[in-house]
Amino acid sequence: MNHRRVLNSVLVYSLLPGMSLIFLIPVWMMLAGSFKADDLVLQHAGSLQGYFPASMSMQNYQDVFDRVPFLRYLLNSMLITSTIVIAGALVNSLAGYALARLRWPGRDWILLVIIALMIIPLEAIAVPLFYEVTLLGWRDTYLVQIVPFIANAFSIYLFYTFFLGLPREFEEAARIDGAGSWRIFFNIVAPNAKPVYAAVAILTFLTQWGSFLWPLMVTHSEEVRPLPLGIAAFYTLPPLQWGDIFAFGVMMVSPVLLVFIVFQRWFVAGVATTGVKG
């Protein structure tokens, strides 16, 4: 029995480095490629050389700033994503709380609709949504990239399940102590939901940072376009230079990695408490 367990562990732990490599190699290749002269990137692609930066040239990074308004894209992405994350945390947690705790007519139906909404992908509603924002005259603005994504069924559901599991006594004690509903939410409930806020923030950040289809549909000027459209611009901007694309990719992915590393512990705790797999 013990013998088998040891064997099992050996097997699992010898597989883990391999698995990690599979996920890490493309990222590493991107990093290595971003420092290479452009013609070398494709030349090395098929060989082991592809995994080592032949030179440490910053030329590709320079090119990115010269050829496209990278900083503009970056600022746009940061503005859009952080607004969605912050407003979303507020709106969705309040909605989840209302569904979990308050009594109001139609609550059960709305909960059902929200759960149903989780399985509808953006692609399915993109066209009607496009008509709607056109009617509102929102095309080619920040607004059109932010507003439709603040309320999120999945985030609401995460908050909802967490609040259901929170002991009611905290809120009842606060009520007897004289706190009103808003104060109870912000002073008692929300501070105890930090892990869920972290999990929702990271999930929202990841989705929105990489969002491509919707911005492509509703924007056309560079002033409001986010990073994913910026990287796409290289494919249509001759000459096609892989080194530049890699450099752009490195700069686009770094903030995501940073956010994840900073919030990692909370994120794991949040996923564990809500019982959701990311």
Binding site: E169, F170, E172, A173, R175, I176, D177, I188, N192
Partner: peptide, 18 residues
């Protein structure tokens, strides 16, 4: 509850954990 000026001790104490 506040207008009634009552205070309560809960079975699980309900101390605010944070």
């Amino acid at each position: 509850p506040q207008q009634r000026n009552v205070a309560m001790v809960f079975q699980n104490y309900a101390l605010y954990p944070h």
